[in-house]
């Protein structure tokens, strides 16, 4: 983990609730897709955790959904502003052992950590599929980014206003995948686990305190005992989760 100053280069509003924030700054501490960062916001005591949408040397992209006053302020931040961001937090997805037909499953703003994963799988030449689900057409975002690095991509909306009508769990590919990587609402993650026998890794989103393993504010009960989502996760293997939270 590493804390440094990042400069907001641009903010692009993707949907009424979701914005893509592009920062410049040192990203050396980020090593694996699925890791997260915490952002220190002036006027707010706790740092906000966000999945890394994508990153490269000297730049970082975050997808920020407005859920409260902190995220609202972050979406309104003037371009050129600097913020303290702690990078390289959490374990991230494991790219090995994903088998012949890995599958990426994202729901809503939970698609964020999957883009970095998709790009790295794409670069490694893996033949993988992606399934993204949203509530409605106005919530759909980042699809073209996934299109540019996914062999097979399917988009679902619950009301059928974009892509196919239905949910990610309707996708037949769930039955055929060798391994899945999922992030999204808890109900979606649980449904995914029930519907496929394939091994999987799931990225969880919970309220955190410190974000680096000190406060025990985000501990969950797992098969192997209490685990901190921020330090031992946020990515957990399907068989480790008890779904109590």
């Amino acid at each position: 983990m590493k804390t440094g100053l990042f400069t907001l280069v641009s903010t692009e509003h993707l949907t009424p609730k979701v914005a893509l924030l592009h920062f410049s700054g040192n990203t050396d501490a980020i090593s694996v897709p699925g890791q997260f960062v915490t952002v220190s916001l002036p006027g707010f005591f706790l740092h906000r955790p966000f999945s890394v949408l994508d990153w490269g040397p000297g730049w970082l992209e975050l997808m920020v959904e407005q859920v409260g006053p902190g995220t609202a302020q972050l979406q309104r931040l003037a371009e050129g502003s600097t913020l303290e961001i702690t990078t390289g937090l959490g374990n991230g997805f494991s790219l090995k052992d994903s088998g012949k037909a890995p599958l990426l499953i994202g729901g809503g703003s939970g698609i964020a950590p999957l883009l970095g994963l998709a790009k790295r799988l794409f670069d490694s030449g893996a033949a993988f599929s992606t399934v993204l689900g949203f509530r409605s057409a106005e919530d759909v975002c980042c699809v073209e980014r996934f299109e540019s690095c996914s062999g097979s991509l399917k988009v679902y909306t619950e009301d059928g206003t974009a892509g196919q009508k239905g949910r990610v769990t309707d996708a037949k590919v769930l039955q055929r995948c060798s391994m899945f990587y999922a992030c999204g609402p808890k109900a979606m993650l649980q449904a995914v686990c029930q519907i496929t026998d394939a091994p999987g890794e799931l990225s969880l989103d919970v309220r955190m305190g410190c974000g680096f393993g000190a406060c025990m504010g985000c501990s969950i009960r797992t098969v192997s005992g209490m685990r901190r989502v921020c330090k031992d996760g946020p990515v957990f293997r399907k068989e480790d989760l008890l779904w109590e939270v």
């Binding site: 005591f45 919970v206 309220r207 955190m208 305190g209 501990s219 209490m226």
Partner: peptide, 17 residues
């Protein structure tokens, strides 16, 4: 095991755990 989540809330210049 401690208490169920959420265990953390924020306040002005402080936090609740």
């Amino acid at each position: 095991e401690g208490n169920p989540l959420p265990r953390i809330a924020e306040s002005a210049s402080g936090m609740l755990n």
